[in-house]
Design a protein around this nucleic acid. Structure first.
Lengths: 333, 333
DNA sequence: CTGTTAGCGCGTTCAC
DNA sequence: GTGAACGCGCTAACAG
């Protein structure tokens, strides 16, 4: 029994079987517009490729073109929940339709310089949740990597793709509470510095809504995911006349609910509470949690379009970021 | 001002600056054991590389060696929560220490045949949560990709790396409840077919523990994340004499808690409940949820070692899967 | 021992 | 529709 090492199928194999040159195979496989191929040849090549199970070497292609068809997403170092997970899934799906392979790299940039990451992948584009240093940006640009920043970072006036909706989330929360008669609002800020990138624009949205509606600025309390800490915040809010609280997300909102409970109170009478994300357990809370959801599919589609535009050098699509967020009304607020 | 298109720095550039050949550059950069290099030359090369900011082209390297230093993780299509997110982060860190770049691809294999994914990456190894078809395995193997399956799939006797701990999770839950005097146990099974790969071994662990302890087999109820559905399950359990319930995970456990509440009962008197994962909101529940946690860092380390072994062809490390799971005792059971 | 030469891996694309 | 060079790093064979 001779061990036949199963060699990789290359374009040369296809060319041989189809009785054409490798160049022709390439033209057929890529449907190169500048090159006309007779239908007969085309069919023969396609047939041969299919029969042999030919798949072009991504490495060779990347080497030649200087760019792979991979889109690399640098994940933030804060815990990613099901919402982000869903976003990534949708993004992957949307980019796959454009022939791009989406992959995510977890782990903060301290563990490993991001340069090592993208140099190991040679991605067509890099999508990040937080900002890059200018040096990093220059390095990537000069390597021909398109860059999209999802969330606004600290530097300069670059605008992040996801910043606007975060702002809207806050506005919607405040609007809901104001619409139900609350005039003095509180904001439950997360006890984790790593999520400031998300929390800050949300809080800003609440602030803006309050200003627009002629309400006092929200009373901000940092709320840890702990009943005792939350109870203290609840006490302070109530002492200050606050009747409705916008929480950074559902987890923080659930903490507020727990705080109310341990203070012998309940929502919405003791304090109206509204979260963000509509996580699965939100409807299991007591009372079920009112929350704000984002249309992840639409966001993913927009992000995908932005990435695509960045790759092709086309102008980024306009943000159709309205109607992307909506309230899921339940009993807590 | 002449626009200088910033060309990529290649080994030829380094060679020129250092006054050596490209081969020497390669030997220095890779510290090739079979080739001795004089310290002086070494330094000159390293210096030049640093000055120029040289990074070898991953594409060229992959093309030549037939293998990149990327480890690809195929994510399951079920919603990934913070636990999996943390696992990925730890895995990434552990593999980075071995010089490997970890990336995850979200999205189920229906959207895109997995062959397209790994052919676009040319990974050194693929790590998957569920099993592959034999055809897929053969294709990958013959392409030189090492394969590690984290969770056992349907086919044959292959053993998944994470299967054992899942089993232990179930055993631990049942043991806890039995230790507190419960003799008739229930199991709250998830209402999502996609997580069967996790749920089945956990339930099997509970069954095994019951058998070992001489208890009746657990009364299995499928529990949706909905108070009403959960209340019905609670009723059936209580009618059947069940006094303690092991839940698939914390979310399902919280559903059981909600079901108890809407039946006018409470844990642990009405029904003792124990979850899995120790998600953040577990301690915010009423009562705080007793749960089982897994040492994700240790699991990640073991998985990383397994991947490494698969790549080098070494025998996989033994499973030190004891002491990896433990109970977080709170009030619910 | 030190370092060089040369050809390979594979898809792309320009000139004929 | 074809021949041939190219992108870039690896490594066997070989010369001082």
């Amino acid at each position: 029994m001779t061990e036949t090492t199963p060699r990789r199928v290359t374009s040369a194999d296809v060319a041989r079987v189809a009785g054409v040159s490798r160049a022709t195979v390439s033209y057929v496989m890529n449907a190169t517009p500048s090159q006309t191929i007779s239908p007969g040849t085309r069919t023969r090549v396609l047939d041969a490729a299919a029969r042999l199970g030919y798949a072009p070497s991504a490495a060779a292609r990347a080497l030649r073109t200087g760019r792979s068809d991979v889109v690399l997403c640098l994940l933030p170092d804060w815990p990613i929940g099901p919402e982000v997970g869903a976003l990534l899934g949708n993004l992957s799906k949307a980019l796959a339709r454009a022939g791009l392979t989406f992959v995510a790299h977890p782990g903060n940039r301290e563990d490993r310089p991001i340069a090592e990451i993208w140099k190991a992948i040679t991605p067509a584009a890099v999508l990040a949740f937080t900002d890059f240093s200018d040096d990093e940006i220059d390095a990537m640009r000069s390597a021909g990597v398109a860059l999209v920043v999802a969330l606004l970072g600290r530097s300069r006036q670059r605008r992040g793709e996801l910043e606007v909706p975060q702002h809207l989330v806050g506005r919607l929360q405040a609007g809901r509470l104001a619409g139900r008669g609350h005039t003095r609002l509180g904001y439950a800020f997360p006890d984790d510095d790593r999520v400031r990138f998300f929390a800050d624009p949300r809080l800003a949205g609440v602030r803006a809504a309050c200003a627009d509606l002629g309400l006092a600025a929200p009373a901000v309390e940092t709320v840890a995911l702990d009943p005792v800490a939350a109870a203290a915040a609840v006490r302070r809010w109530r002492a200050g006349g606050v009747t409705g609280v916008c929480a950074y997300n559902d987890e923080v909102a659930l903490a507020v609910l727990a705080g109310l409970r341990s203070a012998g109170l309940s929502a919405p009478a003791g304090l109206a509470v509204i979260g963000v994300d509509d996580i699965a357990v939100a409807r299991l809370a007591d009372p079920p949690l009112t929350t704000v959801t984002t249309d992840q599919v639409a966001v993913a589609a927009h992000l995908a379009a932005t990435v695509l535009a960045a790759i092709t050098g086309a102008p980024p699509p306009p943000s159709p970021m309205t109607d992307l967020v909506q309230v899921v009304a339940r009993d807590s607020g």
